[in-house]
């Protein structure tokens, strides 16, 4: 029997495969396809204090080996989450992690306090990297002082596992990772989408209503792997890797590069059963390589 259990800070996960925020709804949307309790964790759709309509349509463009999105954190707000969604998912036998967003530090703090009241949410993913909102979002994640400020404020009110989701749209992601680690982050997850753009040559217009959007999918995997490796080498806290993971081999590559766990995102759009195939694939890889604990894979890159 191989052991798939990993730890992020003090929180134990039954396996290292989580579904990424914004790609699995609140779990219920993919419950027809998979037994959610088999997942290591479920990072639910980005939540804000108040209801957000998100950006105008069109919000999506297919690109080579990937896609751009410009959803803009459409969600019904934290009250709706607590009242109408949390009761349905709180007893799932997997970790529910809420992706927390704000336009100001006060909003991040207030939202974190609300989520902190929920017993069955053992961790938050602080999103300082959404490229599709005008205020807040990525603005906090692209400079060390602002990243530090938001993590410092949230850390003061939150004792559970604090994961900070990092933006790849920076000069040196390792510096940002070190900055959030210095303010008490328990883990960093990376990468969020890369800022990109699509143009319609016939109409000479941008494809997305917001002109720019976030690029995801296999197209960004090499960049994500490189950043996971850089961050793994720069910080002591565990790294959660993501960016274009489509299969178990991709996931294992992230772990070898230093990820303690992975998140599967855009792949779910193509096939919502992929996260379970990845868990099975990691098991077979471990059996084939006679690896007993998945922890042996983490950071095992031989240079």
């Amino acid at each position: 029997m191989v052991n798939l259990e990993i730890k992020i800070h003090e929180l134990a996960f039954k396996n290292p495969v989580l579904t990424a925020s914004g790609t699995c709804g609140f779990g219920e949307e993919i419950a027809d396809f998979i037994d959610l309790s088999l997942l290591g964790g479920l990072v639910v759709k980005g939540t804000t204090l108040k209801h957000r309509e998100g950006n105008a349509y069109p919000r999506m463009a297919e690109t080579p080996s990937g896609m751009l999105n410009a959803v803009g954190l459409q969600n019904k707000g934290v009250d709706n989450f607590i009242r109408n969604i949390y009761p349905n998912i709180k007893d799932l036998d997997t970790h529910i992690i809420v992706n927390v967003n704000g336009s100001t530090i006060d909003e991040y703090v207030e939202l974190t306090e609300r989520i902190n009241e929920l017993d069955k949410v053992p961790a938050i993913e602080l999103n300082i990297s959404c490229p599709n909102v005008k205020e807040g979002g990525m603005a906090f994640g692209i400079s060390c002082p602002s990243a530090e400020a938001v993590v410092r404020a949230v850390r003061k009110v939150y004792d559970k596992t604090l994961i900070v989701k990092l933006s790849p749209n920076v000069t040196n992601i390792a510096d940002i990772a070190k900055a959030v680690e210095s303010q008490g982050a328990d883990s960093v997850s990376l990468i969020n989408t890369l800022l990109g753009m699509a143009v319609n040559a016939e109409t000479k217009k941008p494809v997305l209503s917001t002109i720019t959007g976030g690029l995801s999918g296999p197209a960004i995997k090499p960049i994500a792997l490189r950043m996971v490796w850089q961050v793994y080498n720069a910080v002591k806290i565990p790294v959660i890797g993501m960016g274009g993971i489509m299969n178990a081999t991709d996931a294992i590559e992230f772990m070898i590069a230093g990820a303690s766990a992975v998140q599967v995102g855009t792949a779910i759009f193509i096939d919502p059963t992929i996260p379970l195939h990845i868990i099975d694939g990691i098991k077979s890889y471990m059996e084939r390589h006679k690896i007993q604990s998945v922890n042996e894979i983490i950071g095992s890159l031989q240079c």
Binding site: G22, T23, C24, G25, E29, I30, D32, F33, K45, E53, G54, A56, Y57, P58, R59, M60, E62, M67, N69, V71, Q74, T266, I268, F269, P272
Partner: peptide, 27 residues
């Protein structure tokens, strides 16, 4: 027929702006 990525209500890309806000065309 709005452009969609997933088809089952998680990507939130195919929204139509209705009188009651953005609705997913797929779900």
């Amino acid at each position: 027929e709005n452009m969609m990525a997933c088809g089952f209500g998680v990507c939130l890309c195919c929204v139509e702006d209705t009188k009651t806000g953005h609705k997913c065309v797929c779900t």
